[in-house]
Simulated assay, not measured.
Amino acid sequence: MVSISDLACFNLLRMNRATFDKLCYMLRDVGGLKPSKHMLIDEQVAIFLHILAHHVKNRVIQHNFGRSGETISRYFNLVLNGMMRLGNMLLKKPEPVPEDSNDDKWKWFKHCLGALDGTHVKMRVPSPDKARYRNRKGEITTNVLGVCSQDGYFIYVLPGWEGSAADGRVLRDAISRRNGLRVPQGQYYLVDARYTNCEGFLAPYRGQRYHLSEWREGRHPRNVREYFNMRHSSARNVIERCFGILKSRWAILRSPSFYPIRTYNRIIIACCLLHNLIHQEGDLLEDEVEELEVDVDRMDYPPIQNLDTSDEWATFRDNLANECSMLLLLIGLLHERVILSLVTL
């Protein structure tokens, strides 16, 4: 690839030059991508990224890169296959919040692994399948389950479910798969109110203020449950930010694509893997159901495999909410004592 500036590389491919070079090396050494007589690896990868970043049609790439439509299609799929082999390198291994955490957002949720949510990505499907893929807003979409760590890396991605599928149904499928989402006993993910509050998945209290927009303009929690919801929303917002960055960076996720369903599911996974690589490299220039096969670490205890409600988990949430509110009360009392001591001086 001809030497270009970081800014130009970002505008064309959505990553700086150093990150692009690293991706090419990874695709060569791990992804099995090889140069051909007529096209080097960096051009293959550049074509692939340009399509994802700008969602341009094959004929536009033919003009920009001076290649035939068949050549572009062939190398796009070769790079996509190579990206699927990078999953074990780029998907982050979950790490629970430690007991001594001092992170303002996560220290309240000891042993939490991160957050998860579903997002809808528009797509084109054959006419007979449109009813299944039509979501509650009337759009034709696939329901994608995304799981991320506390610092914004994707841990697990499951695309391909029809837009009409409920989030809870997608999550049940994810934890039941042989290489699916694993939640060790005693650990959990933060989820929103559309999911069941059950072992391994901590949901907020329903019927109470929750979203961050509801806490602006000086509004304060009125009770223990609202305070818990405020803390929960502040931490769980990390998955919303991940989805926002993902769709902002890759235009192919913002409008329906003509790729077959299976190929488009793989494209969604590839975009999540690229998100992790760019995040890992500190790229600061940015202000049919299928899953990625990943190795599952052996655990001392069996992972959680059901999503049924339980009194035990409801009590766990109540205790956590009370603990958070007590800490808030102690901080408030300590603050008042400091002020009083200063006044008496």
Rank of each mutant, 00 (worst) to 15 (best):
P96K: 03
R74N: 13
K105W: 09
E99K: 08
V97S: 00
D42A: 05
L33V: 08
V97A: 05
M26Q: 15
K37I: 02
G152H: 01
L78G: 11
L27A: 13
G82H: 09
G32F: 09
M83N: 09
R67A: 03
K122E: 06
R28P: 00
D100Q: 05
G138H: 08
R136N: 00
A115Q: 07
V157F: 06
C148Y: 08
M83P: 08
H55E: 03
S149V: 08
E139P: 02
I140F: 01
R132E: 08
H120E: 14
R28K: 12
D151P: 03
T142H: 01
V45E: 08
E43S: 10
K130N: 00
P35W: 10
R17H: 09
G118P: 10
F48R: 11
V157G: 03
C24G: 08
P96H: 10
N16Y: 14
H111W: 07
I140N: 01
R17C: 15
A46M: 14
L33C: 01
E95H: 07
M123A: 03
F154Q: 00
C24V: 13
I140T: 09
F76K: 02
L80A: 05
D129P: 04
N77G: 08
P98T: 14
V60Y: 04
R136C: 01
I72C: 11
V45N: 08
V56C: 06
V144T: 15
A46T: 10
S36Y: 02
S73A: 13
N143W: 05
N88P: 06
V157D: 08
D151H: 07
G114M: 05
E99D: 13
